[in-house]
């Protein structure tokens, strides 16, 4: 996708990306399981999950990453779809009663020929401020006229 310079997000190193907040519940986790066909009992079977190290059901990691992707889409729009990279580690589970707060911050903005390369730190925390997901997102914006 070619983006005109006037449409490039005005972001500078240190700028915060607009965060995303999502309140989880079992119904939302079940809805995601049905949408993607992933019925791993750690996500949808409360009795099974209660006997695991997690002590209860946890959200799909991909559901949490979808929230991160939503944040990146809001900022970078179609550029995220065709020039986005995400590299993350899952540090802790997101439980079915958690609130997930997605945040991002611009680390660097570099111009290389007709490309503008954004590197952002991305994190997801729960309501106890525990890190659920941490990593880096990169977006290449191809500049046009």
């Amino acid at each position: 996708m070619i983006t005109s310079e006037s449409e490039v997000p005005e972001l500078h190193p240190g700028d915060a990306l607009p965060g995303v907040i999502r309140h989880l519940d079992q119904e939302k986790i079940n809805l995601y399981a049905e949408a993607v066909g992933d019925f791993n009992p750690i996500h949808v079977d409360e009795k099974f999950a209660a006997q695991t190290v997690f002590g209860g059901t946890v959200a799909h990691g991909m559901l949490i990453l979808a929230y991160v992707s939503e944040m990146m889409t809001q900022v970078f729009k179609e550029n995220w779809f065709s020039g986005g990279k995400l590299s993350v580690r899952f540090k802790a589970p997101a439980h079915s009663t958690d609130t997930v707060m997605v945040s991002g911050r611009v680390d660097s903005v570099k111009r290389e020929n007709d490309n503008l390369n954004f590197t952002c730190r991305v994190d997801c925390h729960n309501q106890k401020r525990e890190t659920v997901v941490t990593g880096e997102a990169r977006v290449t914006v191809k500049l046009g006229e």
Partner: peptide
Amino acid sequence: VHASQEIEF
């Protein structure tokens, strides 16, 4: 469970 994920769109 997922431990890590790298994706390029």
